[in-house]
Design a protein around this nucleic acid. Structure first.
Lengths: 217, 217
DNA sequence: CTGACATGTAAAGGGTTTTTACATGAACTG
DNA sequence: CAGTTCATGTAAAAACCCTTTACATGTCAG
């Protein structure tokens, strides 16, 4: 990948070398500043310093580029959650909290990806592709929940799907309302990460999950 | 209000009668379909059947109109939550659940207002106005929480602010991800309202709040 | 070396938004 | 009820931009 790029990158004459990649990068910057609806392919071309028609060789239109970015974003997101989960080590509860932190950190560190993933208004077919790409990310969370509640007695064990939806929703809500260092967001008296951690701990307690601290203690 | 409108509405000649109101209504329809970034003042004018320059008599630009709609939306939202809370009757827990339902119902019944309120990307000064307008709505939730936890022993009582933030975030997360009958959202095996209710009940249980059913029952 | 294909350019076509100068008529005043 | 005023709408022009089409370039395979 970078091989081909460096090879063609040497001579920057008529051909750019890796315009598609450059477009993604520029679009990410524009999305971060103006949102998924706040840029055009012509503007991307201008920033890169290429003719206005060039982008159309690589993406059918603006929405195709956004969909591409959103899908790539979900891949990175999935990887980040997976790494945070780390197969449930050192223990499921701690690992689960790490997943929550990773969720918010992704939204903060990659606000443009996050916006493309959750904030874009795409036509049905493209949006479906993006939604499909999100499946893997949700699966990470769901499997983590399954591990987390595996030790509970069957009678008291909640549906993993429901728990995953609750945690996903709370995480997304916090990210959207208070994360992504939005300068105009409502000020809150704690860090988003801590707000999420507290919320999840209370919720897990409400589920009757024996937490590590009180279990092993 | 409707008095003046009906009076001037009779003759529909050169002057429209209440163009500002008509603009809000048309913009809401366009926002519902294409999002806050998906329309222009010229398009609004065209739909209404008025010249392209007319809107500028009433709003400085597109963003001013969105900000106006967002602020009006928060007023309606506040009223809806207040009515659902109904001074904590019949009992705080039930009333609190009603607030949660009202939250999601507002997002479903008024998706355009909701989008303008939470999804718009406005310049700092306008966004600040909208954020200010949201304060009253959050205050309703916060006061409800205060009532809800008032009976808890002081030592076990959580900060009302934190609880309100958790519930707000969960509500918004569910609304954004699964509410607003988005045809491409991830399918989930329950209604958003029920998902929220279950989540809040579990959370309140985790807080150690004595729920009505187990308290009075 | 040569031909074919991917990639980029130039320029034109089509559409749109916003501004400016002017027109209209509703409401007040006497 | 006539005259004046001012908010409100129109028309037209200026500016901007996106997208497409026909053409140019350079890379790579044979």
């Amino acid at each position: 990948m970078s091989e081909r790029r460096s090879r063609t990158h040497r001579k920057r004459g008529y051909h750019h070398g890796d315009l598609a990649e450059a477009m993604s990068n520029v679009a990410l910057k524009l999305i971060a500043e103006f949102g998924p609806a706040g840029f055009t392919l012509a503007e991307v071309a201008r920033v890169i310093g290429v003719s206005a028609a060039a982008p159309y060789r690589h993406f059918k239109d603006r929405e195709a580029l956004i969909a591409h970015i959103a899908s790539r974003g979900f891949e990175k997101f999935t990887a980040a959650l997976e790494q945070a989960w780390n197969e449930g080590k050192p223990d499921p509860t701690t690992a689960f909290m790490n997943v929550g932190r990773a969720y918010l950190q992704f939204a903060e560190n990659e606000p443009a990806y996050y916006a493309a993933m959750f904030e874009a208004r795409l036509p049905t077919d493209l949006q479906q592709d993006v939604t499909d790409a999100s499946t893997d990310a949700f699966a990470v969370l769901r499997r983590a929940v399954e591990t987390l509640i595996a030790d509970m007695p069957k009678a008291k064990r909640p549906p993993a799907m429901m728990v995953a939806l609750h945690v996903w929703s709370l995480s997304h809500g916090i990210a959207d309302l208070f994360g992504r260092n939005n300068p105009n967001a409502h000020p809150i008296p704690m860090e988003p990460e801590d707000l999420l951690e507290a919320g999840v701990l209370i919720y897990l307690d409400g589920l009757g999950l024996p937490l590590e601290s009180s279990k092993k203690g």
